[in-house]
Design a protein around this nucleic acid. Structure first.
Lengths: 223, 223
DNA sequence: CTCGTTTTGTTCTCCTGTTCACAAACTCCT
DNA sequence: AGGAGTTTGTGAACAGGAGAACAAAACGAG
């Protein structure tokens, strides 16, 4: 009753998947503090959600808690890491070594969470002379070889917007099936390829909208 | 029937607010290409959503289209920009001038979309000697003065996780009411302060989960 | 061994967001 | 001027996620 657990959760809601990494981080923090056991209430507070939601989320993974006691921090941490898939290392390539590419290459949070940057690529020959974060920048044309060599399935796009679609196409052609895109604009990819977009200016614009509402709310209650 | 339009949209759903900047960017692209008019179908394609959702989203702002014709690109662009609040300039401070802070300070997408970086702050005196993106890095202690001087209401946190909560507290104390946080972990802020979080490693972990599913899906269909 | 206490796992209800489908409104052609 | 053809705006059904509330299960005291 251990090998290939059949109840290993068929379809976890997308909203839950997005929160699992948050729980994982909270558990790591708790573990570092020496906490061996925690209740759903404690963990929920540490993760910034409410406890009912936390318990429901965890219930999609299985029954890893003990009623009347709580959750074993190390055990739950392992189970979530396994569910997400970060017990193994994921090789990652970063394309576009400008300011943002530099920052990403140097970001320690990747390495510490199961992601290993195996290559930095840039189309500009000038940049290919550089060494960033101990990795030398190579030509974008090496993409195919690197993907095959390291078994890369995740790519990060940190190029200007104009180059992003072309880079994505070549990534897909090389065999990459998950893309994290920092370039603004819409990426078109074939079925089966996952894209997640991070757009810094969109985040600020959302804040600006709410900020504007706060300002006008003060103006209009004079009626 | 023009001044202070009373139908100026009371409560726009959060999901819609998050998409308005995407529409805005798509409209700017269309305008640059010389397109004067577009249908909801065209704009939806350019923005990467379906047309029904687009029309419903726009309907929360008002009736800015013409049936049988479509939308005037420039007019709609202005209306959305006004609704978001990016027709005016928003002063922004960035705290934490490490790798990521550098990248953010140099990011041209902020300036071009109505955000002006008025100060770069860092607690480390060594960094305060630097000049980044034409702005000299100043002491974090100058925060209060700068916020008052420039009327800053939006702050960006690009510090290590351990400093983030303290920075947030001081931002709030200085009068900042919207925070964009790049540091991992949960930020606690008072009622009325908006926080948006961007966590790079969480995005990768979500991709890893789906990647893992793809891999095991191939393994298990042998039953 | 039994009872009370604690905390999980789950069910039910509510609410937000998405999609469909169509009437209203506009243009163009005859 | 009238009718055919488009395209918007929106009402209504549908799906998915959030939160409250409670039953089931474990522990510990006596």
């Amino acid at each position: 009753m251990s090998a290939r657990t059949p109840e290993s959760a068929r379809d976890i809601p997308e909203a839950t998947v997005a929160r699992l990494p948050v729980y994982l981080r909270a558990l790591i923090t708790l573990a570092d503090e020496g906490t061996a056991t925690c209740s759903s209430e404690e963990l929920a507070t540490a993760a910034g959600v409410n406890s009912a939601k936390l318990r429901k989320d965890l219930s999609y993974l299985g029954s890893y808690g003990t009623r009347g006691v709580g959750y074993d921090v190390e055990y739950l941490r392992y189970q979530i890491a396994r569910e997400i898939g970060v017990t193994q290392d994921w090789p990652v390539v970063i394309v576009g070594i400008g300011n943002l590419g530099h920052a990403l290459a140097n970001y320690s949070g990747f390495r510490s969470r199961g992601f290993r940057v195996v290559a930095l690529l840039d189309a500009d020959p000038v940049r290919q002379a550089e060494v960033v974060a101990g990795i030398d920048v190579r030509s974008f044309d090496d993409l195919d070889r690197i993907v095959v060599e390291h078994g890369v399935s995740i790519g990060v796009i940190a190029t200007p917007a104009v180059a992003a679609q072309d880079v994505a196409d070549r990534m897909v052609a090389a065999g990459i099936t998950s893309i994290l895109n920092f370039a603004p604009g819409v990426l078109t990819v074939p079925e089966g390829v996952d894209v997640r977009k991070v757009d810094l200016s969109i985040e600020l614009q959302i804040l600006a909208y709410h900020e504007q509402r706060k300002a006008t709310a003060g103006t209009e209650d004079a009626s």
